[in-house]
Amino acid sequence: MDIIIAAVGGQGALLASKVLGRLAQNKGLDVKMSEVHGMAQRGGSVITHVRFAEEVNSPLIEEGSADVVLALEMLEGARYISYLKPGGKLITNTQKIDPMSVIIGQQEYPAELKEQLSQLDLEIITEDALGLAKEAGNMKAANIALMGVLAKNTEIEKEEWLTAIKEIVPEKFQEVNITAFELGFNSEV
C-alpha cells in the first residue's frame, strides 16, 4: 500500500507516518517511508511517503501511484493530488490554514477546493478532524483522528491500528489519541 501524507509543518505528519510504519511492520511487511525534517517543518508544506508491501524498493511514491492521499490540510492535499492514482482515495481534513502569501494578501486561498477536487477521478472523503480532536480533548490529535477515517477505509483490522498507536504514541498522550482515533473511525462521513 502506498500512502502520501500531505500536511503543514507542525501538524503531526511524522507521528502519523510512524504509526503507519509500525502497523505495517507488525504485519510482517517490508516498509519504507520518506519524511521531511529541518527547515520545511517550520510551517512549510510537508509531504511524507509511506510504502509497505512484501518488498519495497524506492522510499518515494511515484506520481499517479498512491492508493491514498491523507491530507491534514486541504490545500496541501490538493497540492500533492498528482501522487494519487486515478480512482484512489483522498481523505482530507476540512481545516484550512492560510499560508503567509495569503495572510499578507499576495495570493488567495483557492475557493471551492473540495468541489474542484471532486471533479477528478478520485473518491473524496472529508472530515473535520480538528473538531474531532477538540472533542477528544487535544487539538494536536487531529492527525490521529483523520487516521481513524483512513482505518475505516482499509481492510486492516481496527485492533491492529490501536496496537500500533499504543506502541508509538507516548504514554501520556495515548488516551487522547485513542479517543480521537475512535471518533474518526466511527464518524459518519
Partner: peptide, 13 residues
C-alpha cells in the same frame, strides 16, 4: 496522473 488546473499559493517555511 490527476491534475487540477490551478496555481496554488506557495507555502514555504
Amino acid at each position: 496522473k490527476l491534475e487540477l488546473e490551478q496555481e496554488f499559493p506557495i507555502r514555504p517555511a
